[in-house]
Simulated assay, not measured.
Amino acid sequence: MSIIKQPLLFAGSLGEKHLYTLYDSGANLSCINPEYLENLENPTQLGRIRMMGTAAEGHYIEVTQRVSLDFYMDDVLLSDEFLVIPGLSEEAIIGAATMQKWRIKLDFEHDTAIVDPKVAKMQLV
């Protein structure tokens, strides 16, 4: 199993910050560790609490907040919602739904993630 991590620039209403980001095609949704939200963005409460399953069988984490953030890949501005996960082992995780939305491809041979150049052109319209 290959793992791809890259530093990405995240931007919120309070500022910008580089976060070491894991691309995880096994995770449906994107998430962020709350420790890295200071001076970046204020989270909002979820309408309903979500119980998220972990890799440990039968272990769940209660998720009560989310945050909308912009992030940059190869100077292409992207954005999405990130669930705020207490105790998350990574600074940020880009999940499968975000990868599909922005046509992000994982290149395990070169240990990198690639954003489709057409995405940048779509934003100019």
Rank of each mutant, 00 (worst) to 15 (best):
N33Y: 08
R103C: 06
N39F: 07
E16K: 13
N28R: 07
Q45S: 14
L14E: 10
K17L: 08
G58R: 00
G15M: 09
T44L: 12
T54F: 13
S25G: 05
G58I: 06
E16N: 03
L88P: 05
T21K: 06
P7W: 05
F108W: 10
Q45Y: 09
I49S: 12
E62A: 05
D111N: 04
G87H: 06
K101C: 07
T98Q: 12
M99L: 02
I104F: 06
G15P: 03
P7N: 08
H18N: 07
V67N: 00
E109G: 15
F82H: 00
G26R: 00
R66T: 12
E90S: 13
S2Y: 07
T21Y: 07
Y36V: 04
S25Q: 09
Q65P: 13
T44N: 09
E38M: 11
N39H: 02
I61S: 00
E109T: 13
D70E: 07
K101A: 13
N39K: 02
I49F: 06
F71T: 03
P7V: 04
T112V: 08
F108Y: 14
M73P: 01
R50L: 09
T112G: 10
V63H: 00
V84N: 02
L77I: 11
L78A: 08
L37Q: 02
I3D: 05
A55I: 05
D74W: 07
E109W: 10
M51I: 15
R50T: 00
A92N: 00
V67C: 08
D80K: 14
Y36H: 12
A56E: 10
L22C: 04
S13L: 09
L40S: 05
I61K: 04
A113H: 08
K17C: 02
D70W: 06
I114N: 02
Y60I: 05
V67K: 07
V76G: 05
C31H: 01
Q100K: 15
Q65S: 12
T54W: 08
I49Y: 08
K5I: 00
M73N: 07
E91P: 10
M51S: 14
G87V: 13
R48W: 14
D111L: 02
S68G: 07
Y20R: 15
A27S: 09
Y20A: 09
E90Q: 13
T64D: 04
L19F: 03
T44I: 14
D75C: 06
T44E: 04
D24P: 01
